[in-house]
């Protein structure tokens, strides 16, 4: 079963057509990176898959569930990591994770929380501090651990490495590849060509609401950054 299928999707926001008939699919255990500049329609694609926006035409489904018909079921299958996710500043990392996981109907143990926070590399001594004292990168790490702990088959990541330092970006990319290796289907939107090439099995270039190119990773290899970069510079930002 294909994890995400988007077919000729058209979506308007505020009277302007943002997505102009895009089609792509994400296979189980793979990473699909939607690459594009500002205003290309990357976040609109994610919000449509989450059921926050209604398509003008076309279709989108997650694990065979139409996103307009089965919003609740779709959201149960998806862990969503928004860009610059702001969790509750008056709660610490544990409390935030417990709150949002409980919201999603998932109970966790302290051990599971610590394992997830270890995985994203959040220092032990920071975990019991209120998040108002966290740097942007630390906040993002907690949000990533939240996405991991949701244990959903599909992950939607909106500019996930935004605000992370280079070391943390490398760690995050390794984590994403690891999650895909565990069978998760991941759709990430980004304007980071290097990061996309590091983790994605397939890259789609989005420009003004249209897919203007795509790249597939050869078996066992990564997509060539220079090729994507050149095409991105030529088509996606033209």
């Amino acid at each position: 079963m294909t994890a995400i299928v988007v077919q000729d999707l058209r979506v308007s926001r505020g009277g302007t057509e943002v997505l102009k008939g895009i089609s792509f699919s994400v296979d189980p255990g793979s990473v699909y990176a939607l690459l594009g500049g500002n205003g290309a329609g990357k976040s609109t694609t994610l919000l449509t898959l989450l059921g926050f926006l209604t398509p003008d035409s076309g279709s989108a489904s997650v694990l065979d569930n139409d996103v307009t018909q089965c919003v609740s079921r779709v959201r149960q299958q998806i862990a969503y990591l928004p860009e610059a996710a702001t969790l509750y500043p008056h709660l610490n990392a544990y409390e935030n994770l417990e709150y949002f996981l409980d919201l999603a109907g998932r109970k966790t143990t302290q051990l599971e929380l610590d394992q997830a926070l270890d995985e994203v590399g959040l220092q032990l001594e920071s975990r019991s501090r209120h998040m108002e004292d966290y740097s942007k990168g630390m906040r993002q790490k907690v949000a990533i651990s939240l996405a991991i702990l949701r244990e959903t088959p599909v992950l939607l990541l909106d500019e996930p490495t935004s605000g992370l330092d280079p070391v943390a970006i490398d760690e995050f990319n390794a984590l994403v590849r690891n999650l895909a290796g565990l069978g998760k289907s991941i759709l990430m939107v980004t304007h980071d060509v290097y990061g996309a090439c590091q983790v994605a099995n397939r890259i789609g270039l989005l420009r003004r609401g249209q897919l203007v190119g795509s790249f597939d990773a050869p078996a066992g290899e990564r997509i060539e950054t220079d090729r994507v970069h050149a095409t991105f510079a030529e088509r996606a930002t033209a």
Binding site: F52, I78, L87, F100, A104, G105, R150
Partner: peptide
Amino acid sequence: VAGRLRLIEASAASGAKL
């Protein structure tokens, strides 16, 4: 405004109920 609304509604089984 705090940037949590989408995350909350995407996480909750029912946004309205929340």
